[in-house]
Nucleic acid binder design. Structure first.
Length: 598
RNA sequence: GCCCCGAUAGCUCAGCUGGAUAGAGCAACUGCCUUCUAAGCAGUAGGUCAUGGGUUCGAAUCCCGUUCGGGGUACCA
């Protein structure tokens, strides 16, 4: 039984014995003691004043005496105002350290055969432009979330839905035909996704020009947007694509493959991956069928012009279009089809969509629609709604060229890491390949930590000038701490020091900071659990930072290898090794690697 | 208009289901490398937790109003 539960039970006994009162659980408020007070756990006694009719100090003292008497672990107590601070014997915490060190996968629960299966959808790019900072947040959150769920004993299937068809793709295709000189990415030496992205931008430039020309001739803006030749041609392409025109489909495949090659390179660099990829081109027809089935069942309505609608006003939502009057599908049609396929392919217990909060309404609607279509899992889908990444100038807009490109950003950060490491001269002993590998690790550590440490639900600001930092509350700070620990451990091995007898450690004298660290290590499994329940990588990130920070404080004024007292030295070694392990595991849950030297 | 979300130090962010004197980092200033990695450590300064009320023994946290900001409300995705 966990010590917290033990204390709680004992407090319940105390209330029974001392005041003859059966306390409901929520009246016993046990929390960990704030740093500025003596103790490990604190019982808030204010709520108990009503039942005993004594003043808080008296109650606290009486309960304190009771607990000290009854629980071996409770070593002493003190009372400050209405707070009963309990001090737990340090051997208890040292035992926890031993558990953490000897446990193969500390803090991790592995999935067993009847573990629930969670599918996590993330990334979900369009194939007409390269990935940008917004996708980075999405990818990092999706990947980390998956790791955290796995660590909580779930089976996880990571999935991606690629929006590979539609008018936007046709725009790029048309652009390639008309203004792209029929080049290839290889020929011009560009990454495929960037190559196609530029074609898309070119389309928009031409389109804008045409609109301006038409408006100069007296068309209204709306008419001009409708009538511009290039948009009409793009629509033609879409019709031909849907009709299965061989040339169009071939071009579409070729261009998408260019993009996929580019995406794969970016995914690889970011260290994210998928177990199963769905393509909209393979799911949208299923969606259409489902919608038509809904019409037959009478849950959706088809208007005279052929368009299909769902009336969701009873669910406090609006009327929603499901199929256009020309019979083509919209965004949500595709999501219906994809959902159906997924549940056919996998035995999904829980579906999580990692998609920005601008689509909150969309997912509310999707849940209701799936439910109406008769899928029991529809209402249970979870939209993991994360905030936007803003730039100092405001929101990123692809059309206005204010996006931060994913590849560029990563490359820039690697360069900063490289410059810094070379200036510090720390990696000179490594081979060029190893050094380069480390620069990347640090750069990505900085980027990933920067993004994952903030509460996913909130919008966040990324300032390219200032956000690239490697000092303070950053990924590299934590990575550095790990490298530092490994350095100590390497030296310990050189000196032939190792911890074999755990028993002798239990009587070690420990400092305040050491105890803080022991408690912090003992906390890790609970943090992983909480991160899983709250779906929050930020909790892991903040924990890792606190742990690293406290280790550095410890490191600064506690000799480890040079400690003359053998017991103390061994305890510090074990503490260091364990913290190194926890940091590595924790950062691993964020998808961040930690180097052994930096 | 209607619906959702947010506001904590100059800046970026923590602050768990209400608990003790609201915390970090960056930026500014000051110390610490002959000692296990200074991408570090220690210190100074910086706050009317947007604002007005309410609930409570106790509110940054819960409820209501106001102001400001963001998003949604498409035959775009």
């Amino acid at each position: 039984m966990k010590i917290e539960e033990k204390i709680q039970n004992a407090v319940a006994d105390a209330l029974q014995v001392l005041y003859g009162y059966d306390a409901p659980e929520n009246l016993i408020q046990l929390q960990s003691t704030r740093k500025d007070f003596e103790g490990d756990f604190t019982l808030v006694v204010f709520p108990l004043t009503k039942i005993s009719r004594k003043n808080p100090e008296v109650i606290a003292t009486e309960i304190g005496e009771f607990l000290k008497e009854k629980l071996d672990e409770v070593y002493s107590f003190n009372v400050v105002k209405g707070f009963l601070n309990l001090e737990v014997d340090s051997s208890y915490w040292i035992g926890k350290l031993q558990d953490a060190w000897t446990c193969e996968l500390y803090g991790i629960i592995e999935a067993d055969d009847d573990a629930e299966l969670v599918m996590v959808e993330y990334s979900s790019p369009n194939t007409n432009k390269p990935l940008h900072l917004g996708h980075i947040r999405n990818n990092l959150l999706g990947f980390s979330l998956s790791e955290i769920l796995k660590a909580n004993g779930f089976k996880v299937v990571k999935t991606n839905i690629v929006n590979d068809r539609g008018i936007h793709i046709c725009k790029s295709m048309l652009s390639w035909q008309k203004w792209g000189n029929r080049q290839t990415p290889e020929a011009v030496g560009k990454k495929g996704d960037h190559f196609v992205g530029e074609l898309y931008v070119e389309f928009n430039n031409q389109y804008k020009k045409e609109i301006a020309e038409l408006m100069a001739k007296g068309f209204s803006q709306k008419e001009a947007e409708e009538q511009a030749p290039s948009i009409r041609e793009a629509r033609q392409l879409l019709l031909r694509w849907e009709a299965g025109d061989k040339d169009v489909v071939e071009l579409w495949q070729t261009m998408n493959n260019w993009v996929y090659e580019g995406f794969d390179a970016t995914y690889k660099k970011m260290g994210v991956n998928f177990d199963k990829i769905y393509y909209e081109s393979e799911t949208y027809l299923v969606g259409k069928q489902e919608v038509m089935r809904g019409v037959e069942k009478g849950i959706f309505q088809q208007k005279d012009d052929g368009s299909v609608w769902a009336d969701l006003t009873d669910d406090r939502l609006d009327k929603k279009l499901l199929l256009r009057s020309d019979g083509t599908s919209v965004y949500i049609t595709q999501d219906i089809g994809t959902a159906k396929l997924r549940f056919k392919d996998f035995d999904i217990d829980k579906m999580i969509y990692v998609v920005g909060n601008e689509q909150n309404y969309h997912f509310q609607v999707l849940a209701v629609l799936l439910d109406k279509l008769g899928y029991s899992w529809g209402k249970g889908l979870h939209h993991f709604s994360y905030g936007m990444v803003e730039l100092p100038g405001g929101k990123m807009k692809s059309r206005e060229g204010t996006v931060v490109d994913a590849d560029d950003l990563i490359e820039e950060m690697v360069q900063v890491a490289r410059d810094m490491a070379q200036e510090l001269g720390k990696l000179d002993a490594l081979t060029p390949d190893e050094a380069e590998r480390t620069y990347e690790m640090i750069a990505l550590g900085a980027l990933k930590y920067f993004i994952l440490k903030v509460d996913p639900k909130k919008n966040m600001l990324f300032n390219p000038e200032e956000s690239i930092d490697f000092n303070g509350n950053t990924g590299p700070f934590i990575q550095y701490t790990h490298a530092r620990i490994q350095s100590v451990l390497r030296k310990a091995i050189e000196k032939n020091l190792s911890v074999t007898d755990y028993q002798e450690l239990f009587s070690s004298e420990i400092s305040f900071k050491e105890k803080e660290l022991l408690k912090r290590v003992a906390q890790f499994p609970a943090i992983v659990k909480e991160a899983g329940l709250n779906l929050s990588p930020a909790l892991i990130a903040n924990y890792c930072y606190e742990l690293a920070k406290e280790y550095n404080q410890f490191y600064h004024n506690h000799p480890i290898l040079a400690e003359s007292d053998k017991q103390r030295r061994n305890l510090r070694l074990l503490l260091s090794a364990t913290i190194g392990k926890v940091v590595k595991t924790g950062m691993g849950l964020l998808g961040i690697e930690v180097p052994d030297r930096m």
